[in-house]
Computed example of a mutant assay.
Amino acid sequence: MTYDKNTLGHTTSQGWEMGVRRTFALTPEAAWETLFTQPILGIWLDKAAHIAFQKNDTYTTASGITITVTSVTTVKVIRMKWQQQGQPNASTLQIRVIPAKDKTTISFHHEWLTGQAEREAMKTYWTRVLDAIGQTQKNS
């Protein structure tokens, strides 16, 4: 199937992709820690995950998602391969922590998705993570 260059979420260079972001009243350091520790880590990766998130670290979740960290700039950006169980190819996930005055923006950018359906599913997935971070802030 071919797609018009204006098809939302489809690019010629990265295939299907999506991005979501939200700004929180957190320091960049607190945002980074929130993303990579429980309970938020359990929402986006696995409740049993204990991974250092260093380059070349690999982890497979109970649901069969395998991640491999490809690059890390601590408290700024992490890139990883994200492979769903049963998928022949991995997609690329980038998580960024962006200072925004006295707040911090957390951004998820996911590219090389298999199609429009996976794009929508991952958009919902990462939005749910941002919602959970927001809920955690309200409860603290």
Rank of each mutant, 00 (worst) to 15 (best):
T104S: 12
T124K: 01
K103S: 14
T105W: 04
R128Q: 03
Q116K: 07
V129N: 02
L130S: 02
M122G: 01
D131I: 13
S107V: 12
A132P: 05
A117R: 13
S107Y: 08
E111L: 01
R128G: 05
K103I: 14
T105F: 03
A121N: 09
E118D: 08
R119L: 13
M122R: 03
K101W: 08
K123P: 02
E120Y: 06
D102M: 15
A117M: 13
L130I: 01
W126V: 10
K101M: 09
H109R: 08
E120A: 10
L130P: 02
D131H: 11
G115E: 05
W126L: 05
T105E: 14
A117P: 13
D131S: 10
V129Y: 01
W112Y: 11
A117V: 12
L113R: 10
Y125S: 14
H110C: 05
E111A: 05
Y125I: 08
H109G: 03
T105D: 04
S107F: 10
W126K: 08
T105A: 04
R119W: 03
T124E: 01
A117F: 13
D131L: 08
M122V: 00
E120R: 05
L130V: 04
W112F: 13
A117S: 15
R119S: 13
T124C: 00
T105P: 04
K101R: 12
F108H: 01
A121D: 11
V129Q: 02
G115A: 10
G115Y: 09
F108I: 00
